[in-house]
Nucleic acid binder design. Structure first.
Lengths: 193, 193
DNA sequence: GTCTATAGCGCGATAGAC
DNA sequence: GTCTATCGCGCTATAGAC
């Protein structure tokens, strides 16, 4: 939830995140961000050293949160119930703060962020997330299903965008599908129960 | 499969498609494309009126192919078996020509192509594809699963990229998961058989 | 069909006043 | 903390020779 009163630094982050996601990082100029805030480009440079550093500032938070969640998962036994609880926690955190918007920004600017250090950090920790949901000897179809569980939680926005589902409905349905997928993978691993 | 001998126009398309997908549309300059081909920027302008028109040229083929497939599906009765056959045809076409590369280019340049007419045409026909896989009264979780079936076929490249699965293994596994998902959706619709 | 040369523009970033 | 003014660059695109 965005605060009603924010300092300038935080307002720059919010406007930039929205514009970068909507139009793309490269297609969004600092002039546009400044204009929407009612200031000039030069003012932005008081708060951030560069355009790149605006991105860094909100990616850092996402990377740290994901790393904490992965640390929790790695300390737990690798059971089916751990995986269910992991997915629940992942979904819950995604709805807090700027996390969902940052993931959407990342997905839609994969190429522009290809060599960005923070982007690589998020990609690496997402790979650890994927590893947590997988077993070493899972065949490829099971790996794909585990990945789709993660993707389901990120992608609610592109499902039936014209229909008026509430955010809560979308989040709930996405979590349900994600849990069904990890359950299906668990069942596939032990066909005899 | 790319031909060994190509005319210059076709070579420009291939190099541009690869660079646009790898680095992003906006981040790729005509100078880079020209250099990789061993010609100058001005030479590209003999074959294409603008940078935008290079994109248009390979998106047109993708849109037309998708529209033909959707026309087939819309003429068929909306049965479970039609949906299975539709997914099989979709997967088969994706492996031909430049289709898979064009979809990857689209996914990775969503923002840059936001207002591109051909991109909107592909988005619209993808929405018709989604409609074909859905029933009017499908609840949200079923809609999400149907979408994931499509996504599975596009996303094999991000699954375990470091492992050496062959293209055939990836395509086969993705098709299998997509079919399992449409079957699961069909089963959810008729829990009593 | 490809070249050299350049026009014209918007960008990220900086300097220095207030 | 925000402003005006400007620098330098790389880009898309075009003109015209060969």
């Amino acid at each position: 939830m965005r605060e009603h009163r924010q300092d300038t630094r935080s307002r720059i982050q919010d406007v930039a995140l929205d514009l970068f996601t909507e139009q793309g990082y490269e297609a969004t100029s600092l002039r546009e961000i400044a204009e929407r805030l009612g200031v000039t480009k030069a003012a932005l440079y008081y708060h951030f050293k560069s355009k790149d550093e605006i991105v860094t500032s909100f990616m850092e938070d996402r990377a740290a949160t994901l790393e904490r969640l992965v640390a929790w998962g790695q300390a737990e036994p690798r059971t089916d119930e751990m995986r269910r609880e992991f997915v629940r926690r992942y979904a819950a955190e995604l709805t807090e703060g700027r996390h969902y918007r940052v993931m959407r920004f990342l997905e839609r600017n994969q190429t522009a962020l290809r060599d960005h250090p923070k982007s690589e950090r998020v990609r690496e920790v997402m790979y650890s997330v994927f590893e947590l949901l997988s077993e070493a000897d899972d065949p490829l179809p099971l790996r794909i299903k585990s990945s789709l569980a993660l993707f389901a939680m990120h992608a609610t926005w592109f499902i039936a965008p014209e229909q008026d589902y509430s955010d809560e409905e979308r989040e709930g349905a996405a979590l349900q599908v994600a849990l069904e997928l990890v359950d299906a993978v668990a069942a596939d691993r032990q066909p005899t129960g």
